[in-house]
Computed example of a mutant assay.
Amino acid sequence: MQNGFYTVTGGMVTQFNRLDMISENLANSRTNGYKQKNGIVGDFMRIYQDKRDELPLPNQTREAAKFLNRSINRVPRLVEEYTDFTMGPIVESGNPLDLALGEKNLFFAVETPGGIRLTRDGAFKINDKGELVTRDGFKVLSRNYFQSRQAITIPFDAINVSVGKDGRIEYLDKTAMDTPVYLDDLMVVRVDNLQDLRAEGDNYFAMPDKKLEEEMNVVTDTRAVYQYMVEKSNVNPIREMTALIETNRLVEMYQKAMNAQMDDMNNDAITKLASIRA
């Protein structure tokens, strides 16, 4: 058995997984509200040392030695994937329906075919029914959604739609231009443990194994909603391109090591075994 071959193969698979994440990050570097994906590379020895106290095997025993396969104990692997929720740059758009959130653990709530989801992408628009929706056509939820089950509907003749920092939506009516008309309040949700969120698509998040409606912490006193602003992706394209070059070089190195294992060592072994000496 050529143990080195398995080590090199594991290393290549790890780099392929890194390439997938880097490619996704680069593809979404201009997606509003997108959060960068990252991974942690470890090896079998590290995983064993972290988890051995949980195993039903006493340390330094024959059974534990069998479990700790020395042929793969240094194989690199992607042991954890996580999302970087640091805020992206907030830029002025000039669109009154573009909204940004000033805290990283705040989200807008939207209704999708798969249920309620959270997003940082506040580039909203009005559909043909007058409903406030995302670029994908998902309804943006109001603070009293669970009581009314109604979408935020903006009259087509509304003038100067304004959204306060607390999420309060108002507009001016043609019949009373001096008095703002209250319309609704945006649902803004705070998530305490961001790593509980599971990414769906480019910029939507869900809570796995939980009913989002029951777990949502709807904020009523926020002062972090900014109109005429939109949050961009937090991906640094230069850093990702550097990581892409590094990963490609590692793949090439693993490929050379694999060729050495499969070709050079095998040829050398065959040559020596086949040689006949008097």
Rank of each mutant, 00 (worst) to 15 (best):
M229T: 13
N160L: 12
Y204Q: 01
D173Q: 10
D166K: 13
K256W: 03
Q195K: 13
V219Q: 04
V230H: 12
T175P: 02
T247E: 00
T220E: 14
K174N: 13
Y254P: 09
T175V: 00
T220P: 05
L197V: 01
L197F: 13
R249N: 10
M229H: 14
M241L: 11
D184R: 08
T175L: 14
Q195S: 11
D128A: 06
L250K: 06
G137P: 03
K174C: 07
L186W: 01
R149C: 03
A199Q: 09
L141K: 02
A243W: 05
Q195C: 08
Y226W: 15
M216Y: 15
K232C: 10
R198F: 12
R249Y: 11
E170N: 14
S162V: 14
A158G: 04
L250M: 05
L194T: 00
M216Q: 10
N160M: 06
M258V: 00
Y226C: 06
Q227P: 07
A243G: 00
G167M: 04
R249G: 03
T134M: 07
I154W: 02
T242C: 07
E170G: 07
K232V: 05
D196E: 15
E215C: 02
V225P: 07
E131R: 02
A206K: 10
V219A: 02
A206F: 01
A260Q: 12
N259P: 09
F156K: 13
F138M: 07
K174H: 12
R143E: 03
A260M: 14
D202Y: 09
R143C: 01
F138N: 02
Q147T: 01
F205K: 00
M229C: 14
R168H: 10
A151L: 00
R190Y: 05
N259A: 12
E231P: 08
D185T: 08
L244Q: 05
V133I: 09
Y226K: 15
E214D: 14
A151S: 05
F156I: 05
E213R: 11
F146R: 04
S162H: 15
Q261T: 05
M258T: 01
D264P: 06
L186Y: 01
E170I: 09
T153M: 03
A243F: 03
I126Q: 14
